[in-house]
Amino acid sequence: MGEVIVITSGKGGVGKTTTTANLGTGIALQGKKVVLIDTDIGLRNLDVVMGLENRIVYDLVDVIEGQCRLKQALIKDKRFEGLYLLPAPQTRDKNAVAPHQMVDLCEELKKEYDYIIIDCPAGIEQGFKNAIAGADRAFVVTTPEVSAVRDADRIIGLLEANEIRNPQLIVNRVRPDMVKRGDMMSIEDIIDILAIGLIGVVPDDENIIISTNRGEPAVNDSKSIAGQAYRNITRRILGEDVPFINLNNSDGFLAKMKKLFGIKPA
């Protein structure tokens, strides 16, 4: 029986889609069967981030309305064994899907796949309700900014109100140099405020933009520091105890970052 994980944030632009693409790819690289579902109806993007935009025939709403079989709508990623994408429709309304239909879809997928990762739209309306309906577990993505942390707090409250217990936090786009000089909230500051468990810290990395340009998830790039962070989160999802990193040592910035994300010095 598989597990359904929703990636959510409240605020837009903090990296939900990038996180979904990288964690899904990372889990597939570990030999698991994974389905990624884009629930951002009308503003789909997981397809382009994954580089699968030219392969869409059917979408989430086609499946829910019975226009096609589930298997027909799943796009198999030929680069990564066991990885599939169920895209969102681009020309439909959010109300084309109801939460109970998402529950049914997730139950169906759990029979055959190890992980179902749901990319949630920004906001707290219908799209959010659909995305979390079938979830067993939630990851809340935030960045070290007041607006993103505030929205994350709201989302955590809504997840708990919907009985999705113990959501876990991913802090994205951290800049250790700014944290060090006191111009960016640290991981500890954010956890102190949000009071939830941490599952990952992803440093700001221009490789993410480059890999998104190419449609190749950074998790597969051994030189990308964000990719290493996503590989660490992947291992934590699979139950491994991967230590978090201490930012307060006296190493130089690069050495610190490499140590932080587990890249051994050359």
Partner: peptide, 19 residues
């Protein structure tokens, strides 16, 4: 105060109201 301390204080206050 460093700007992150200002951010943290402002956030804490705004969240009391939000929550």
């Amino acid at each position: 105060d460093s700007s992150k301390d200002v951010a943290k204080e402002r956030l804490k206050l705004v969240l009391i109201h939000d929550r």
